[in-house]
Structures are given as structure tokens and as C-alpha cells.
Computed example of a mutant assay.
Amino acid sequence: MIKEITLIVATLYGGLAIILGAFGAHALKKIFTPEQIASFETGVKYQMYHAIVLLIIGTQLPLVNSIEVVMVWLFIIGTLLFSFSIYGLSISSAKGNKIKILGPITPLGGLLLVAGWVCLLIYFISYGKLI
């Protein structure tokens, strides 16, 4: 079941990154400051990067042990918290009513993404994929 979840989320994140990137480049460009555009684009980039990572993990790893499952959830939740909090902060800031509660969520999402990468490193080392 985790393999299916991984691949579904990967495709949803990838497709949404394209949609949100186009939305940011066209519709939001008119109301965003250059800093808000840059921030929004950062969210889109990280979302797409991790969509690709999830797609590769979902097709190349067996996803049968706990380190793999934890890694997948760290990437899924980390991307959600990181990228979508940036979108919320950017849009709410442009509308003049910044949702401040989202501010601490962005670094939490980033921390989960880093933890996902650490899990991937541990997986490679533990299962002889590096050495």
C-alpha cells in the first residue's frame, strides 16, 4: 500500500507543481512583489524536486522496511508543510493579511525533508547500496 501512496502523491505533487508554477508565473506575477515571486517559486521547485524523488523511490525501492516507509512519509509530509506553507505565506502576504502561523511551519517542513534525506543515506549505507 505504501508503494501506491508514494506513486500517487508523487504524481499529484508533480502535476500540482506545474499548475502552481504556471499560476505563479502568470496570474500571481501581477500582484506579487519580486520577493514574493521568488519565495513562491522556491516552494514550487522543492515540491517538484520531491515529487521526482518520491517517483524514483516508489519505482526503485521495495518499500518493505521501516526506514523506507519513514523516509517516504518524511518526504510527503515535509513537502506538504514546506511548500504549501510558502504558498500560503506568499498569497496571504500579497493580499495584505499575512497568516503568521504559517511562518514556523516552513522550517518544520524543511527539517522533515532533511530527515528524509538522512533516512535515504542510512538506507543506502545499511543495505549496502553505497559501499
Rank of each mutant, 00 (worst) to 15 (best):
K129V: 07
G43H: 01
G96V: 01
S90T: 13
L102I: 05
A17D: 01
F124V: 11
I99F: 04
G128S: 07
I8T: 14
H26P: 08
L102K: 03
C119Y: 05
L113N: 05
G15Q: 00
K129C: 03
A38F: 00
I52Y: 03
S126N: 14
T59V: 11
L55W: 12
T106A: 12
K45N: 10
V114K: 08
A25F: 12
F82L: 00
K29S: 15
M1P: 08
G110F: 00
K100W: 11
Y49P: 09
I31K: 15
P34L: 01
Y87M: 03
N97F: 08
S92R: 07
L112F: 12
I8L: 14
I8F: 12
E35P: 05
H26L: 10
S85L: 06
I105L: 11
V70S: 08
F124H: 09
G116Q: 09
I125H: 12
L61N: 02
H26S: 09
G43S: 04
S39G: 07
G110M: 00
G21D: 07
Q60K: 15
F82Y: 10
T79R: 05
L55M: 14
G43F: 01
L16V: 08
L89N: 07
I101R: 06
C119F: 12
L7C: 07
Y13I: 05
L81D: 01
N65G: 01
I67Y: 13
T79K: 04
